[in-house]
Simulated scan of single mutants.
Amino acid sequence: MPYHGAVRVGGPAEVRELAHLMITKVAVGPMDNNAYLLRCRATDEQLLVDAAADAPTLLETVGDRLATVVTTHRHRDHWSALADVVAATGARTAAGRHDAEGIAVPTDLLLDEGGTVRVGQVELTVHHLVGHTPGAVVLVYDDPQGHPHLFTGDCLFPGGPGRTTRPEDFTSLMDGLEAKVFTLPDETWVYPGHGDDTTLGAERPHLAEWRARGW
């Protein structure tokens, strides 16, 4: 069955098979968070994007081996299961440098703009976006045999950017999205922190509308 990216809490995970990477999407917790398990097909090394909630479900998804957990931003609904997942797996933790202080579990690897995170032989590029939080990061996997894949946390959803608390934060987030994210091709698949997936091509026509609508 083809991947569609629509998952619900308590329902089955969705699995996407790429040439070099397996992506498993599962919904967890009272805020319907998405967590993404990435597995390098050459080495079987695994990386989890956002240990958001419901550690038992995440650990069942992960299995017996996990190398890294990346937290996309400091909001608690994206890391409330992090301590339990790390305790059970021994995985190292990674987060944006400017959000690490707001995450209760110590961060082993501080992420900066243009840096990389590896899962086996697969490399993910880090982009730092200021606005939803001071240190939010998004991850890009540029599939050499296909289109890019973008893990956006709460910075971008189907229908627009994530919420901000001040107009200047909204402007900063929009500036970052346009400069660092929407430079990718329309085929780029977007995996957000909540809800269904989208593509940059589906969202790009609405950039001016989002700017005009404001925060």
Rank of each mutant, 00 (worst) to 15 (best):
G146T: 12
V137Q: 02
V126T: 10
L21M: 05
L82G: 04
R41G: 09
L82T: 06
H206Y: 15
F182A: 06
F151H: 03
T183H: 03
I103A: 08
A67G: 10
D84R: 14
A52D: 10
T183K: 04
L66Q: 11
V9A: 09
E187R: 13
G115R: 01
L18A: 07
G214I: 08
P144Q: 13
T171H: 12
E168H: 12
P192Y: 07
L156P: 01
E17I: 12
H147E: 15
M174H: 08
L59V: 10
A136P: 00
E60L: 07
G160P: 07
K180C: 06
P30T: 13
D54S: 12
P148T: 12
G102E: 10
T152R: 00
T43K: 11
A52C: 13
F157S: 00
M31L: 15
F157M: 02
M31Q: 14
R97L: 12
V190P: 05
F182P: 07
G29Q: 10
G162I: 01
V181F: 01
Q121L: 14
T107E: 01
A51W: 10
R166S: 04
T165D: 14
G10A: 10
G115N: 02
G135K: 00
D196G: 13
G114M: 08
E209I: 06
A83T: 10
G159L: 06
W189F: 09
G29R: 09
V181G: 02
L111N: 02
A179E: 15
Q46H: 00
A51M: 11
E178Y: 02
V85T: 03
T165M: 08
L47E: 07
T68M: 13
G146V: 12
